[in-house]
């Protein structure tokens, strides 16, 4: 337990480029374990770009590359000898729009575990993952039905369950509730509170109340004069929303921005 000051993930001067365009510049973040960290900021400031760089999803965007360091347990995720597949296994992701596989509910969860070599009892894993995602009661009788038959909110919780099933260290969420109605949104927020007992969560959100309600830390991003996004303020959520140090943060969280 002497390691408590080890962060879940740290970035040192991390920049992300799309070809010649630098979308995110010089980010230094130390993400606490088992806490929820929100990333906020105006549209186009590079929140998704930054988030996706954490599990190297940007590898699939032609021309996109990162400079600087991103450290997970002291290993730089962008060093040459790192396997992006292993990274994604440790750092799961939930996307803005629910994107279940066009398969059964059961298969949606079992697939990721199976390809990652899960050897335990699959039925149990499916059940536990669904319970953790607060979805079990709703779907336990129709596990073999297509995931497409679920509502949007249920689909999103299924995607969270799917991510939990591979037991990652960190879960990234890019506006996970933006396509959902208020009730479903609330359920996702409650769920996050449960999950943070075991996982480190990073969430991008446009919803200030959500960030204020649900997160422990908040990173505020903003673009500079070259349109590159950067973190201008990073602190406990309480401080960000009650006594921000940066004027721009204050304007943004109080809705006076732009």
């Amino acid at each position: 337990m002497q390691n408590t000051r080890t962060y879940a993930i740290e970035s040192n001067d991390l920049s992300i480029h799309y070809g010649t365009f630098t979308a995110v510049r010089g980010v230094n973040l130390k993400i606490e374990r088992q806490k929820i960290t929100a990333i906020i900021g105006p549209s186009g400031c590079g929140k998704s770009t930054l988030l996706r760089s954490f599990n190297r999803m940007n590898d699939f965007v032609p021309g996109c590359y990162a400079t600087g360091e991103l450290l997970l347990q002291g290993q730089n995720l962008y060093s040459k000898d790192i396997d992006p597949v292993e990274v994604r296994r440790k750092i799961g992701m939930v996307f803005q729009k629910p994107n279940p596989f066009p398969k059964s509910i059961y298969e949606n969860i079992a697939w990721g575990a199976r390809i990652n070599g899960f050897k335990g009892k699959m039925d149990d894993l499916v059940e536990q993952s669904l319970r953790s995602a607060a979805l079990w009661e709703e779907v336990k009788d129709k596990l073999q039905e297509s995931a497409y038959a679920l509502s949007g909110g249920q689909q999103q919780r299924l995607c969270i369950a799917r991510t939990i099933a591979i037991q990652p260290e960190i879960i990234l969420m890019d506006e996970p509730a933006s396509a959902l109605d208020p009730i479903s949104t609330l359920r996702i927020e409650e769920l996050m509170q449960e999950l943070k007992k075991n996982y480190t969560i990073l969430i991008v959100t446009h919803n200030m109340q959500q960030a204020a309600r649900a997160s422990d830390y908040t990173a505020m991003m903003m673009i500079d004069d070259q349109r590159a996004g950067g973190v201008i303020e990073f602190d406990e959520t309480k401080s960000i929303f009650t006594r921000p140090k940066d004027k721009r943060t204050e304007d943004y969280v109080t809705g006076r921005f732009g």
């Binding site: 994604r88 296994r89 994107n99 279940p100 596989f101 990721g112 991510t163 591979i166």
Partner: peptide
Amino acid sequence: VPDSLRQAAYGVGATRWQTIWHH
């Protein structure tokens, strides 16, 4: 085949070929 499906697979730690073959 929509990209969101590929991302979903990569997101749970699938390799390229696993993604292609299964999805």
